[in-house]
Write a protein that binds this DNA or RNA. Sequence first.
DNA 1: GATGCTATTAAACATTCGTTTGAAACGCAA
DNA 2: TTGCGTTTCAAACGAATGTTTAATAGCATC
Lengths: 214, 214
Amino acid sequence: MIPSQLAEVTRERVLRAAGEVFAERGFRDATVRDICGKAGVNVASVNYYFRNKEALYCEALSFAFEEAEERYPFDCPEGEGVTPAERLRHFIRNFLMRLLDDTHLGWHGKLITREILSPTAALVPIVDSIMKPRFDAVRRIVIQLVPHPLDDDSLERCVLSIFGQCLVYRHARSVIDQMRPQIVAGPEDREATAEHVFRFVLAALTHLPPTPGT
Amino acid sequence: MIPSQLAEVTRERVLRAAGEVFAERGFRDATVRDICGKAGVNVASVNYYFRNKEALYCEALSFAFEEAEERYPFDCPEGEGVTPAERLRHFIRNFLMRLLDDTHLGWHGKLITREILSPTAALVPIVDSIMKPRFDAVRRIVIQLVPHPLDDDSLERCVLSIFGQCLVYRHARSVIDQMRPQIVAGPEDREATAEHVFRFVLAALTHLPPTPGT
DNA sequence: GATGCTATTAAACATTCGTTTGAAACGCAA
DNA sequence: TTGCGTTTCAAACGAATGTTTAATAGCATC
């Protein structure tokens, strides 16, 4: 019952290996034998430290989010001196880099992408605690940049247009790699991509025509 | 060896059931027993008509694309009298409606989404034969709408910005449904969404600033 | 050193699933 | 009807996998 220091390190080894394998192969195709093999522990460990494979998955998902939050902190500057355009640029770059990071925590982006596509019960708290605040922040930026009032649905669709332009680089990565890999290959390419999305969104928001109906 | 008429109908029943189940549960979670149960045939049928589960999956994928192409034909009008903006609107609406159709061929959108995320060998010919021409068509539209020359990478990123804004409504559907379902609920909402994406893209392309470097 | 709790291990269990098999049913021409 | 090729079926096989068990080893405390 009382976990020792040694137990915690093997527990985290399993968690880390689980994140990688789940991200690479998905929940079903990832076997506990693969995970434990990668972690260098016995298969019974997953049942000893976590209840079963599903509970391990839930913990791995939370763990991935905590690590990603630590590495790419949200911290969208809301200070007085920062223009809405600057906040937009900061957000897009931050979000895109987190999605495309394949080196250290490469599995975070893949993991959450799989979860969004085939949602489990584990997604609900993540949407509420992590995605909703992010949507709210972008919503405030959009309102400040569009030169005329927006109804709620149009506002929401603008936010989705922004997220969509970032997410496509992760979601359609296999297609991009097959058609034009150089635009996300190196760090400087990713910076250029972030800059493009920012310019594209800024041009759209500041020149968006008012909806005829309103 | 000589397939009878009766054999073809059961073959297609299996193919259709396979498309639905594969789209709903993914390749691994879909069992041939489920598929055959839904089709009302014996489990041995998948081995008799197709070689095995994987071959069935490949055929189901092609089948879904053929049906979708039939229902939402590409036919981007390239005629003289059609403005680039009109072609853009047509493309976006067509693409979005196909992605969001959940009634008749609802599985097409889910199926290709799964395939893009976890690509198999079956994706390569689809990218070449279906996606590449689509990218080319959008590329031509973008060139005509942006008021200054674009380098290849910027052009490609513009195309991805357009696709991303459409794809997000399918890829992030679970999140949208949890946060603001009304924007994709009914057919008129989907029309409004298509119109939004069109206006957003048009505003961006026609007001995109030239890249400083070029 | 003895004791009691924690951690690890190899082996086995039970289930699921893709695939195969061999026979029965069916359709159709001679 | 008889015979033959095609299609369907129930049953079983074999492999993979999540989970459990029972025994062993490690480690701190007295």
